[in-house]
Design a protein around this nucleic acid. Structure first.
Lengths: 243, 243
DNA sequence: GCAAAAGTGTTCCGTTTACACCCATGG
DNA sequence: CCATGGGTGTAAACGGAACACTTTTGC
């Protein structure tokens, strides 16, 4: 009997649970990040049976014979969160001989950024559950997932300082303070508001929507959106973005 | 008949050439960099038979059942160059469905820095040869190796600006101008000598050997060596090195 | 008016850049 | 004495950090 269903990537983690169309020694795992109330969160899964029962871990699955690694990562994230159009980047491959107890398994790890309000995490069932965790208050993780998490956090902190990826965590239109809170959540430090404004605006990645917030108990802030055109232009020629 | 011998990683590239103790769908490939006369070089291999006959490619091999990914990369580099104590870091995994013609193969790519004068590249034989190429004048590469090379160069350029890794390409004792030439070779741009000196020295990664060059037709330069102790200290607490 | 956040202005200070200039050595 | 690279000094420009201050909105 297999506990695998289309809704539960790597549901049981045991050797006989690998779906027949999958490569039996390659998985993808995902660090799925979101920000909620100024805190950086990561989505973890726990299985009630199998190898790592009752430990939390990254959301992953076996790679199918006919899909690219990136596609596998997108598939897994979409299956669990419902999010389709997401920011996704490869972290690294992890493949130490003893990282996975049953058999030699290499995992290619991706990290992705999702807007929490767009996610629709698949509900708990009797075999697995998913839950958002504050990245500074993580439970014990299965296998080498703690090591992977540390590498992933470091990479995310690097990325956000060198490419304008923060907007992937926000609604399409956002205020500068919201963006600042994203940076503060990821980098785990505070910034000076006036200086943050100037620095971000000088980079020219933001377009003023010419709209204001409404129904706020203070002066309404301008709404901005990310200028993908300018970003692609700069990508093409290589650029230096540094927060 | 297999053309594999211990001296020739992935000698033939054909399906029946995979050694029995290796995982048949995972390889490591290596971007082996060195600097010669102020030019950044990369070591490539060409096979006279098999799938990619007469095209140049990265130096790789199948991963053995009983070795970590890192160990496999070290093994391959040592086999080809004789270099043991090298700088080695993972670039990424590449695993598109169609990247390798015969069968689905995922490659985990590493990049390493070697001092060219310490290398002893295995000699040409009738089935393969290795050669150093200037990274700005590369031949056509097999499979997806051009794509991998571009990613690897970008990573190396990032790395050298954020961690003091340049000394891995130099003898133990070196002059500041030699170090500057490493930076110029990797980043493909010129720096102002006085400013480079000050910037590097201020970072405190270098120890003055209190020795001078000899037999040079100009004022003898001071020799420096890399201070691994200071580097590890800073690693521990997280640091910002930026060239 | 008050609280809260938006948004502007300004000062200070360290860093970067550009370049002038002197020093040591071999031929 | 000249060519070559080693090495120091410095002035101007730039950019980040800190913080005072004004503006707008809902209650």
């Amino acid at each position: 009997m297999s506990v695998y269903t289309s809704n539960q990537p790597r549901a049981g983690l045991d050797d006989d649970k690998i779906p027949p169309n999958c490569i039996n020694n390659i998985t993808v795992d995902n660090l799925i990040f979101a920000v909620e109330n100024g805190n950086l969160k990561v989505l973890l899964v726990k299985y009630s049976e199998g190898l790592a029962a009752d430990k939390w871990g990254l959301i992953g699955h076996w790679v199918q014979e006919d899909e690219n690694l990136d596609s596998a990562a997108v598939r897994v994230v979409k299956t669990i969160t419902g999010v389709d159009n997401l920011y996704l980047d490869q972290l690294a491959a992890f493949g130490n001989v003893d990282r996975y107890p049953i058999r030699r398994t290499i995992t290619v790890v991706y990290y992705s950024l999702v807007r929490m309000e767009e996610t629709c995490v698949v509900p708990k069932n009797d075999r697995s559950q998913c839950q958002w965790f504050d990245v500074r208050k993580l439970p014990e993780l299965m296998f080498d997932h703690r090591h992977i998490m540390d590498k992933g956090l470091a990479r995310l902190q690097y990325k956000v300082r060198h490419e304008p990826i923060g907007f992937n965590l926000l609604p399409e239109k956002f205020t500068l303070l919201q963006l600042q809170e994203i940076y503060e959540a990821i980098l785990n430090k505070k910034f000076d508001k006036p200086n943050f404004r100037r620095k971000i605006l000088k980079m020219n990645f933001l377009i003023d929507c010419k709209e204001k917030q409404t129904n706020v108990a203070h002066r309404a802030a301008s709404l901005y959106r990310f200028d993908n055109h300018v970003y692609e232009k700069l990508r093409e020629f290589g650029f230096t973005f540094e927060y």
